[in-house]
Protein backbone atom coordinates (compact mmCIF):
# COMPACT_ATOMS: atom_id res chain seq x y z
CA UNK A 1 0.00 0.00 0.00
CA UNK A 2 2.75 2.35 1.03
CA UNK A 3 4.83 1.35 -2.00
CA UNK A 4 2.00 2.14 -4.28
CA UNK A 5 1.61 5.51 -2.72
CA UNK A 6 5.31 6.17 -2.99
CA UNK A 7 5.19 5.27 -6.64
CA UNK A 8 2.42 7.75 -7.22
CA UNK A 9 4.33 10.54 -5.57
CA UNK A 10 7.50 9.89 -7.48
CA UNK A 11 5.89 9.69 -10.88
CA UNK A 12 5.80 13.08 -12.64
CA UNK A 13 2.14 13.72 -13.24
CA UNK A 14 0.93 15.63 -16.31
CA UNK A 15 -0.85 18.03 -13.93
CA UNK A 16 2.46 19.39 -12.73
CA UNK A 17 3.38 20.38 -16.26
CA UNK A 18 0.04 22.05 -16.56
CA UNK A 19 0.66 24.01 -13.39
CA UNK A 20 3.91 25.32 -14.82
CA UNK A 21 2.12 26.84 -17.76
CA UNK A 22 1.14 30.57 -17.44
CA UNK A 23 -2.29 29.95 -18.95
CA UNK A 24 -3.21 27.26 -16.44
CA UNK A 25 -2.04 29.46 -13.59
CA UNK A 26 -4.27 32.24 -14.89
CA UNK A 27 -7.20 29.83 -15.27
CA UNK A 28 -6.80 28.72 -11.68
CA UNK A 29 -6.59 32.35 -10.61
CA UNK A 30 -9.83 33.08 -12.43
CA UNK A 31 -11.40 30.04 -10.77
CA UNK A 32 -10.55 31.55 -7.39
CA UNK A 33 -7.12 30.22 -6.51
CA UNK A 34 -5.38 33.52 -5.93
CA UNK A 35 -2.17 31.84 -4.74
CA UNK A 36 -1.22 31.16 -8.37
CA UNK A 37 -0.67 34.88 -8.79
CA UNK A 38 2.31 34.59 -6.46
CA UNK A 39 3.85 32.07 -8.87
CA UNK A 40 3.26 34.39 -11.82
CA UNK A 41 4.92 37.25 -9.97
CA UNK A 42 7.87 35.13 -8.97
CA UNK A 43 8.28 33.94 -12.52
CA UNK A 44 8.11 37.31 -14.30
CA UNK A 45 9.14 39.94 -11.78
CA UNK A 46 12.79 40.18 -12.85
CA UNK A 47 12.00 40.55 -16.51
CA UNK A 48 9.44 43.23 -15.69
CA UNK A 49 11.85 45.03 -13.36
CA UNK A 50 14.56 44.94 -16.05
CA UNK A 51 12.28 46.32 -18.74
CA UNK A 52 11.31 49.11 -16.39
CA UNK A 53 14.95 49.72 -15.53
CA UNK A 54 15.95 49.93 -19.20
CA UNK A 55 12.99 51.99 -20.26
CA UNK A 56 13.12 54.44 -17.37
CA UNK A 57 16.88 54.94 -17.56
CA UNK A 58 17.29 55.12 -13.81
CA UNK A 59 16.57 52.69 -11.09
CA UNK A 60 15.02 54.88 -8.39
CA UNK A 61 11.40 54.08 -9.13
CA UNK A 62 11.87 50.68 -10.81
CA UNK A 63 10.26 48.68 -8.02
CA UNK A 64 7.41 51.11 -7.60
CA UNK A 65 6.54 50.95 -11.29
CA UNK A 66 6.98 47.15 -11.33
CA UNK A 67 4.59 46.91 -8.41
CA UNK A 68 2.08 49.05 -10.22
CA UNK A 69 2.40 46.70 -13.20
CA UNK A 70 1.60 43.64 -11.09
CA UNK A 71 -1.26 45.36 -9.28
CA UNK A 72 -2.77 46.21 -12.68
CA UNK A 73 -2.24 42.61 -13.80
CA UNK A 74 -3.87 41.32 -10.59
CA UNK A 75 -6.90 43.54 -11.10
CA UNK A 76 -7.31 42.67 -14.78
CA UNK A 77 -6.21 39.07 -14.90
CA UNK A 78 -9.79 37.80 -14.89
CA UNK A 79 -10.30 39.69 -18.18
CA UNK A 80 -7.31 38.01 -19.87
CA UNK A 81 -8.56 36.55 -23.17
CA UNK A 82 -5.84 33.92 -23.81
CA UNK A 83 -5.38 35.27 -27.37
CA UNK A 84 -1.68 36.07 -26.94
CA UNK A 85 1.16 35.03 -24.67
CA UNK A 86 0.76 36.16 -21.09
CA UNK A 87 4.24 37.71 -21.32
CA UNK A 88 3.23 39.82 -24.35
CA UNK A 89 0.29 41.16 -22.34
CA UNK A 90 2.47 41.63 -19.26
CA UNK A 91 5.25 43.48 -21.13
CA UNK A 92 2.73 45.64 -22.92
CA UNK A 93 1.33 46.69 -19.54
CA UNK A 94 4.90 47.28 -18.36
CA UNK A 95 5.81 49.48 -21.32
CA UNK A 96 2.55 51.41 -20.99
CA UNK A 97 3.20 52.01 -17.28
CA UNK A 98 6.71 53.25 -18.13
CA UNK A 99 5.34 55.53 -20.80
CA UNK A 100 2.81 56.95 -18.31
CA UNK A 101 5.61 57.69 -15.88
CA UNK A 102 7.80 59.22 -18.57
CA UNK A 103 4.89 61.42 -19.63
CA UNK A 104 4.36 62.56 -16.04
CA UNK A 105 8.07 63.17 -15.74
CA UNK A 106 8.08 65.31 -18.88
CA UNK A 107 5.18 67.38 -17.56
CA UNK A 108 6.96 67.75 -14.21
CA UNK A 109 10.15 68.82 -15.99
CA UNK A 110 8.31 71.62 -17.78
CA UNK A 111 7.82 73.25 -14.37
CA UNK A 112 11.30 72.41 -13.04
CA UNK A 113 14.40 74.55 -13.80
CA UNK A 114 16.78 72.92 -16.30
CA UNK A 115 19.65 72.88 -13.81
CA UNK A 116 17.66 70.87 -11.29
CA UNK A 117 16.72 68.28 -13.87
CA UNK A 118 20.37 67.85 -14.79
CA UNK A 119 21.37 67.60 -11.15
CA UNK A 120 18.73 65.01 -10.43
CA UNK A 121 19.08 62.84 -13.51
CA UNK A 122 22.42 63.94 -14.92
CA UNK A 123 22.10 61.76 -18.01
CA UNK A 124 22.44 64.34 -20.72
CA UNK A 125 26.10 65.12 -20.27
CA UNK A 126 28.86 62.81 -21.17
CA UNK A 127 31.98 63.50 -19.13
CA UNK A 128 35.51 62.69 -20.14
CA UNK A 129 36.04 60.73 -16.90
CA UNK A 130 33.24 58.30 -17.72
CA UNK A 131 33.95 54.71 -18.68
CA UNK A 132 32.70 53.16 -21.91
CA UNK A 133 29.43 51.61 -20.56
CA UNK A 134 28.56 54.95 -18.98
CA UNK A 135 29.18 56.76 -22.25
CA UNK A 136 27.04 54.29 -24.16
CA UNK A 137 24.21 54.41 -21.58
CA UNK A 138 24.19 58.19 -21.65
CA UNK A 139 24.21 58.15 -25.43
CA UNK A 140 21.27 55.70 -25.50
CA UNK A 141 19.39 57.81 -22.99
CA UNK A 142 19.57 60.66 -25.49
CA UNK A 143 17.60 58.65 -28.03
CA UNK A 144 13.92 59.36 -28.36
CA UNK A 145 11.66 56.92 -26.49
CA UNK A 146 10.19 55.30 -29.61
CA UNK A 147 13.73 54.41 -30.86
CA UNK A 148 15.28 53.61 -27.49
CA UNK A 149 12.70 51.08 -26.26
CA UNK A 150 12.83 48.75 -29.34
CA UNK A 151 16.63 48.93 -29.39
CA UNK A 152 16.96 47.99 -25.72
CA UNK A 153 14.28 45.29 -25.93
CA UNK A 154 16.21 43.77 -28.81
CA UNK A 155 19.82 44.17 -27.71
CA UNK A 156 19.45 43.71 -23.94
CA UNK A 157 16.33 41.62 -23.46
CA UNK A 158 16.76 39.67 -26.65
CA UNK A 159 13.15 40.13 -27.83
CA UNK A 160 12.35 39.18 -31.40
CA UNK A 161 11.03 41.89 -33.72
CA UNK A 162 7.59 40.29 -33.48
CA UNK A 163 7.66 40.37 -29.70
CA UNK A 164 8.75 44.00 -29.75
CA UNK A 165 5.96 44.82 -32.23
CA UNK A 166 3.41 43.15 -29.92
CA UNK A 167 4.76 44.88 -26.86
CA UNK A 168 4.98 48.41 -28.21
CA UNK A 169 1.91 47.84 -30.38
CA UNK A 170 3.23 48.64 -33.85
CA UNK A 171 4.06 46.89 -37.14
CA UNK A 172 7.07 44.61 -37.39
CA UNK A 173 8.49 46.72 -40.27
CA UNK A 174 8.29 49.76 -38.01
CA UNK A 175 10.30 47.93 -35.37
CA UNK A 176 12.93 47.02 -37.94
CA UNK A 177 13.14 50.60 -39.14
CA UNK A 178 13.21 52.05 -35.60
CA UNK A 179 16.02 49.79 -34.52
CA UNK A 180 18.05 50.74 -37.60
CA UNK A 181 17.40 54.42 -36.94
CA UNK A 182 18.28 54.00 -33.27
CA UNK A 183 21.62 52.49 -34.22
CA UNK A 184 22.34 55.22 -36.76
CA UNK A 185 21.55 57.90 -34.16
CA UNK A 186 23.62 56.15 -31.55
CA UNK A 187 26.52 55.97 -33.96
CA UNK A 188 26.29 59.72 -34.59
CA UNK A 189 26.15 60.49 -30.85
CA UNK A 190 29.14 58.29 -30.14
CA UNK A 191 31.20 59.63 -33.09
CA UNK A 192 33.32 61.95 -30.86
CA UNK A 193 34.29 58.94 -28.76
CA UNK A 194 35.12 56.72 -31.71
CA UNK A 195 38.75 56.38 -30.71
CA UNK A 196 38.02 55.39 -27.11
CA UNK A 197 35.31 52.94 -28.14
Amino acid sequence: MSLKRKKKVLQPSPRILEIDDDFSLIKRFIEGDETTFRTLVYRHKEKVRNIVYLTMNYSDSVDDIAQEVFITVYKNLKYFRFESQFTTWLYRITINKCRDHLRKLKIRNIFTPVKDIEEVHGYNHINENMDIPDIVRKAISKLPEKLRIPLLLKDIEGFSYQEIADTVQCEIGTVKSRIFRARESLRNILKPYEGEL
Partner: peptide
Protein backbone atom coordinates in the same frame (compact mmCIF):
# COMPACT_ATOMS: atom_id res chain seq x y z
CA UNK B 1 30.26 46.66 -32.58
CA UNK B 2 27.38 48.99 -31.60
CA UNK B 3 25.18 46.02 -30.66
CA UNK B 4 27.95 44.62 -28.55
CA UNK B 5 28.58 47.96 -26.89
CA UNK B 6 24.90 48.32 -26.07
CA UNK B 7 24.64 44.83 -24.67
CA UNK B 8 27.73 45.20 -22.55
CA UNK B 9 26.80 48.63 -21.21
CA UNK B 10 23.76 47.46 -19.26
CA UNK B 11 24.09 45.14 -16.33
CA UNK B 12 21.13 43.18 -15.10
CA UNK B 13 19.40 44.93 -12.26
CA UNK B 14 20.04 43.40 -8.87
CA UNK B 15 17.26 41.36 -7.30
CA UNK B 16 14.89 43.08 -4.92
CA UNK B 17 14.51 40.71 -1.95
CA UNK B 18 11.36 42.34 -0.54
CA UNK B 19 9.68 42.98 -3.86
CA UNK B 20 7.04 40.27 -3.42
CA UNK B 21 6.46 41.06 0.24
CA UNK B 22 5.82 44.68 -0.58
CA UNK B 23 3.71 43.81 -3.59
Amino acid sequence: RLKELTRSSFKRISEAPYFETRL
